[in-house]
Amino acid sequence: MIVAIASGKGGTGKTTLSVNLAKMLAPNVQLLDCDVEAPNCHLFLEGEVHERIIVNRLVPHIDETRCNACGECARFCAFHAIAMLGTVPLVFPEMCHECGGCVKVCPVKAIKEKGQPIGVIEKRQSQGVPLVQGRLDIGVAMAPPLIRAVKACINKETTVIIDAPPGTSCPVLATVRDADFTVLVTEPTPFGLNDLALAVGMVRALGVPFGVVINRTGIGDARVHDYCRAQDIPILLEIPDDRRIAEAYSRGIAVIDAVPEMREHFLNLFNKIRQTI
């Protein structure tokens, strides 16, 4: 069972929820951190990295001895990653989307693909929680290939909790796609509502079953509740606005350790998700 924890708006509590669910389900769980631009799950779990895998993406490399400068690769590339100037095509790896088209269209087989590092996968074992975390290299634009590599580590035998990146664009789609259930975390504010509605549009388009968790209940107004009611979206859990939770978070302490009564709420949440699937 794969459960993705996502949200339109950042900072609503995705990581908090992911880490706490994983800790509660340990050892029958695997935690994936797919927020590869800002991976934070490890900050709330002890344990050293025991395996580090460099993730490459494939970019074209031109064999100049074979190339006949016909320019077909440059004409084909939809992403303008190859330009035909002078006598040899020029490759701009940062523009490449790894489609492999240039290799296929080259009439003289002068193009091969070579790996270019874009980030790392770090594996940790912490108090019964195996964590697989992606970490995008600085200056690399495209996160989805790394996210797909993190997801390739999924252990299908167990419950998988995935901490997704914020938003609704490519990296989130790459993360949430083929999850069995998605939890959308939000907060009861106008920003929270606006971004929740966007995220709902996304999961509906993907056809993934979902429910909402409202974090910091009490800080804003009732519009998120009204929206969920009107849209017939289940509110799976409400986490109260509690200074103890905020302080624990700021120090990297899991909520279920700092505020033990929350354990039961997270357990209820998980049971609701399991019943839905």
Binding site: A38, I138, G139, M142, A143, P165, P171
Partner: peptide
């Protein structure tokens, strides 16, 4: 700006 460090942030 957007959150993160990837494509939209670089842009």
């Amino acid at each position: 700006g957007p959150p993160g460090i990837g494509c939209p942030v670089i842009a």
